[in-house]
């Protein structure tokens, strides 16, 4: 599957990158990181121009982030309100919303590249919780620029090993994302327990 996608890059060029980063920002399981590594390798060999690769990958990711945020803002409001109104989830949803608003920059920035598995959900949650658009957009721009620069740069430097490198980095990011989610869940359970005990 990944090999087939990688073989599409020489066929369709940067358009594949644009679509991959756009769709992956909407939580579709597209291996966009390995496609960016391959694009970096094609830049190193002189097959593709660096500016075109970066523009396509960054453009797709930024539009994808805005689409996710917009979907959350338009379609997620009702869902978010139901969470807030529910006696079971109301407290947790209020705290999650206010934490996201207070720490919008680190949450959005790091979920673009370091915890990228969480990115699409952060987009939707930020829109649904009505996090300010300018703050979200600046963090999204800087985070996606880091993501694209990092992967295209790694592909450029390690052109012969991109598949192995991609699988290794994806596993590390998956483990990191799981650790962050586990920590947040553990904290929520712990706080609820202490609140009920008080």
């Amino acid at each position: 599957m990944t090999d087939t996608l990688l073989a599409l890059v020489p066929q369709h060029g940067p358009l594949v990158l644009f679509l991959a980063t756009f769709l992956s920002c909407l939580a579709l399981p597209i291996p966009s990181s390995i496609l960016m590594l391959a694009a970096g390798a094609f830049v190193a060999s002189g097959d593709l121009a660096a500016a075109t690769v970066v523009a396509a990958a960054l453009g797709g990711a930024l539009i994808g982030d805005q689409a996710g945020y917009g979907l959350g803002r338009v379609g997620g409001g009702g869902f978010w309100q139901r969470l807030l109104d529910s006696p079971r989830s109301g407290g947790i949803a209020r705290r999650a919303g206010s934490a996201l608003r207070r720490r919008v920059f680190p949450t959005v920035y790091f979920s673009r590249w370091l915890f990228s598995a969480l990115g699409p959900y952060v987009n939707f949650a930020a829109g649904a919780a009505r996090v300010g658009w300018p703050g979200f957009s600046i963090a999204s721009l800087l985070g996606e620029a880091t993501w694209v620069g990092l992967y295209v740069g790694l592909g450029f430097l390690f052109a012969a090993r991109i598949e192995t490198l991609g699988a290794t980095v994806s596993s590390a990011i998956g483990a990191l994302a799981a650790a962050v989610v586990a920590l947040l869940l553990g904290r929520m359970i712990w706080r609820n327990r202490r609140k009920k005990a008080a």
Binding site: D3, L6, A7, A44, S45, G46, D47, A159, E163
Partner: peptide, 12 residues
């Protein structure tokens, strides 16, 4: 690998 291009093979 079969997804590689000739220039990629030459470079890598």
């Amino acid at each position: 690998e079969d997804w590689m291009t000739p220039r990629h093979v030459v470079h890598a």
